[in-house]
Design a binder for these strands. Structure first.
Lengths: 220, 220, 220, 220
DNA sequence: AATGAATGAGATTTCATTCAT
DNA sequence: AATGAATGAAATCTCATTCAT
């Protein structure tokens, strides 16, 4: 009986916690950090402000929790190139998958808020940056290094080429969203943008790409 | 005499206006939009709040003015390739110049604020985005198209390649600054980063780059 | 069996009650009345708030209980003068004993709180005042009257001389503690302070003290 | 004209400040520190809370100001003994004057509040203690030392006798007030209480008092 | 009998903006 | 034209106490 009671209570409490997180996320996304009101959040979650504060000791902590949740949701693994399949496809799948996970994680709109709060929550910003950007970046470096080791790519400084790759993806699919509320990332259903981008990358770094030792970029 | 007085008055008024703008910029950069106080700005500018409001009808308008000023300060012209000189150099100079102007214009830290205020000043964000991102983007597209017309580059869709180029630059020199207060953009004194990036670009799009029609990126 | 259970339960209940009182005393002494939190008290006592409220219907009542307990702990009996021993010694012992009991009873730091809450708990303050001050005062008056009756002291208005005696003790050993947290009453290990004070008193009221009927305090 | 305007404005501002102080004092005396509400104070002073906070940066500061004002109002100078007049009278006048100034200064009821806040405003308590208790104490020591030097009093440790004197006064006229709201200090219109207390003191310390070197306080 | 999550009411404090001078 | 004191509305957070389990 006690166990049952406990379970029931626990369930209710967890439900409230979730309700709060949901309401808070909505409020923050709608209003940004400063303009979001704890009172409103409590109200939307059908909870008193006191209860809200029992669950999350401060607005800052509540916000951090939401950001953490979202950024934890962002997972990225560069898929292993499939033997015999075009290397290009691996890159495209990786880019598409990473992007999808990123967009699905709700991190993007939260990032706007985090960025705006940089002077007042530098630690949070740093942390978010690390979780999202570093994660993506490191996974990519690792994959590129592997591919070099396996002879797919020419040896080169992957710590910079990885950033080039990611930079292009961000520019096309993410950057605009920083400046526009309710921004929907441009679709790339036929995958042409990503493919173009990957081609640009592999044109330089694939072992199969032509040698350019003697090429000059001079005008003829 | 009156004219002289008028001139004097005008001068004083203009000086006050400048003092306000200067103080406000400092405040905003230090505290972000919401936490910057009109009273503090007035105080720093040695002006009463009433005078402040005579010059700028509201905090929002004052902020917009500052952002506009800064973004107007960001000028970018892709230099014409010099005949006989390596094409590469043109790109490097362009990238370096653009970046320098961007960083010097104070737009970067203001952008953080603009981004944070997106839900409350969507128009401002849109405008800033246009002035900065579009400007850079369009100037680059134009230059690339010219170079195609002049036979420097292979014909291709410059509306996307331009973004690739800019995306890589942003990733290396700008993105991190969005998440870190007092961020100093990484130096690139020897220009190696930019050069690597340009090489990647030209490897694919220079008319001198080897043909890759029959190249497959497959593993051998 | 039932009886045993009852006994057990009773024991547990009493233990909890004591735990609560102990925790509450600590809280109140540390934080004062207003800043002491019922939740904290319950927590420190390893009891739920509901249980806390089962035992003490309100914060006020809980506090009153603690003050009562402490002030009941303060016992003072003026020791009978020992025949043939210096009267002085009786007074010194009395003063020392009274002071010791007072300091040991924890009343002093609680008094600070009681005093601060005078406007909100006038009854409690009155009661505490009576229990502590009156008690001390009445015991002293009684002893002095006895000593007059027994021919130790000159006849006089003991209702005022008793207060003089106590007033001097309070001034030296208690007053400062009202204004300083963690105040430790000045030690008087050699008893010189108390002895001086007692001498002052007996110089005027002892039957052995010289007559002063014809003394004028005029400067010669 | 400007000067006049300034004067007018200054006058108004000062008046508001005084209104606030008055309202605050009343509120604090009525409700103690914690229960006094800044909103209520503002309301009583016919001022908005914002104005209240312009004048006093915080509740704590406002309270400290009031205490300081009151304690500054407490002045005590032990009057010089008049040549040829009974020394007794000097002491009685001194006691009466000191007491009157103390009671008139409003410090007494504020002291209750200060004492209650000791754990949370130790500095304020210390300061108040110094201003009131030390001041009284030091002035008395100085006067006693002078009288010793001038041959009115027997040489002795005045740092303790001064406290005896003050302790008796406090006991009779002040102590009770700590525990009772709206307490009116007992009158002593005929001066008999003070006279009795002074006699007790001089009986021991006046140069004219009989020698007690050979007196034993033993029961005969 | 015991729990502890939930509450409602209120506390202090801030800020963009106005208006009498 | 300029001042700066005054404002009203709102924001975050706390606490003694209750009630469903």
């Amino acid at each position: 009986m006690e166990a049952a009671t406990d379970t029931y209570r626990t369930t209710v409490v967890k439900a409230k916690r979730q309700a709060i997180l949901k309401a808070a996320r909505a409020q923050f996304l709608k209003c940004g950090y400063t303009h979001a009101g704890m009172t409103d959040i409590a109200c939307d979650a059908d909870v008193s402000t006191a209860t809200l504060y029992k669950h999350f000791r401060s607005k800052e902590i509540l916000f951090a929790e939401i950001v953490e949740q979202a950024s934890d949701h962002f997972k990225f693994d560069f898929p292993q190139p499939v033997d015999g399949a075009p290397l290009e496809d691996s890159f495209c799948v990786a880019a598409k998958t990473g992007l999808k996970s990123f967009l699905a994680s709700d991190v993007q709109p939260l990032m706007r808020i985090v960025i705006g709060e940089v002077p007042f929550a530098p630690e949070l910003a740093r942390e978010t940056f690390k979780r999202v950007t570093h994660h993506w970046y490191n996974a990519t470096i690792g994959a590129l290094d592997d591919m070099i080791a396996q002879g797919y790519l020419k040896p080169h400084d992957t710590s910079i080429s990885a950033r080039f790759l990611i930079g292009m993806i961000k520019e096309i699919f993410i950057w605009d969203g920083l400046f526009h509320a309710n921004h929907v990332a441009p679709t790339d259903d036929d995958g042409r943008k990503i493919r173009t981008l990957v081609e640009l990358f592999l044109h330089r770094y694939s072992v199969n790409s032509p040698d350019t030792k003697n090429v000059v970029w001079l005008r003829s």
